[in-house]
Amino acid sequence: MTITQKNLLAIGGTIIVLLMLFSWLGLAGSRASQTAGALMILGMTVGSFLNVLIFRLPKMLEYRWRMECADASGQTIAQTAAMTLSRPRSHCPACQTPLAAWQLMPVLSFLLLRGRCANCAAKINPRYPLVELGLGLAFACIGWNYGIQPTTPAYLALIFLLTALALIDCDAKLLPDALTQVLLWSGLACNLFQLFAPLQDAVIGAMAGYLGMWLIAAVFRLCAGKDGLGRGDFKLMAGIGAWLGWQQLPLTLGAGAICSALCGGILIHFKRMNRDTPQAFGPYLIAAACLAMLRGNEIIGWYFSLASGHHNG
């Protein structure tokens, strides 16, 4: 569906209503609603930084790789100012005009600007406010369901990392070590205190996640004569195993593979993608990992109950 000005205004009106609702709940509601409202605002603010990270990190890595390759080959290339997460200032991609502070307000600035640059009237990508709103709602759900307890900051950090990895993989077909390593080590650190899984299960999960994906990739390469998985997928599964434990890996891999096959088949059927076009696998693994995080034990229990019932029958 094409996103028109009317669509954007409708989205904007919905966002305002949600903000007003959560603000009211935060003042007059229960402890759960107050926590949800506060974390929604935090999530939208963090979502603004997430947009910067998604856009800039692949470019920063590409610049560093080019410099390293030039240095290793003895070539001389013109050096430009390296991009960082803080430099240069956020600006309009069309006219390069730096954004004022009020133009950086999550979601609200997009609505005030009516989806266009204040200087050149170029359209602003609606993904920016949608990412901010999506992360805000995800944080609000965590606050509503878990309140403030030791696992809450861990849930928020995990959602942030997984969202960043999924969107970067969608855009650049890349799962950066800078994020997958943080995912791995933070998962093991959290499970020192058994926040998600016993430490032994987390360590086994990290090992099994990496080695399992490596084995699948090796078998695929042997059968198809080409690579089917990137090493970033190995590290992503290691990180997921470190957070959730080895028990959730079969569900994550199985559900991720099924979703990838279904979406790929639909895109090929409607000629939106060629059969030989590489497809990012990370977002499907991440979506499946979120399912495993929220309902993994129930799904596994239901599966074994079903299998046991069929066996007994």
Score class of each variant (00 low, 15 high):
Gly228Met: 06
Glu62Pro: 03
Ile3Trp: 13
Met1Thr: 10
Gly115Phe: 03
Gly134Phe: 05
Glu298Trp: 13
Ser23Pro: 03
Gln103Cys: 06
Ile15Trp: 08
Ala261Gly: 11
Leu158Lys: 05
Leu262Val: 15
Asn191Phe: 05
Met237Leu: 15
Gly205Leu: 02
Leu211Ser: 10
Ser260His: 12
Thr80Tyr: 13
Met40Leu: 15
Pro126Ala: 08
Leu162His: 04
Thr152Ala: 10
Gly209Tyr: 02
Ala70Met: 07
Lys271Tyr: 08
Ala122Cys: 06
Leu267Met: 15
Ala36Tyr: 01
Asn119Gly: 05
Phe304Trp: 15
Val17Met: 14
Asn145Tyr: 12
Gln5Pro: 06
Cys95Ile: 08
Ala166Cys: 09
Trp65Ile: 07
Ala292Ile: 02
Ala38Arg: 07
Ser33Phe: 14
Leu42Tyr: 08
Ile124Asp: 00
Pro98Gln: 09
Ile159Asp: 03
Arg87Lys: 13
Ala242Val: 02
Leu306Val: 08
Asn51Met: 06
Met293Gly: 01
Cys69Gly: 06
Leu251Ala: 03
Gly115Glu: 01
Leu8Ser: 09
Asp177Ala: 14
Trp65Val: 07
Asp233Cys: 09
Gly309Asn: 15
Asp227Thr: 14
Gln194Thr: 15
Cys141Glu: 09
Arg231Cys: 13
Asn191Glu: 05
Ile142Cys: 05
Pro150Cys: 09
Ile168Met: 07
Tyr284Gln: 00
Leu162Cys: 08
Asn125Ser: 12
Leu27Glu: 10
Ile142Ser: 00
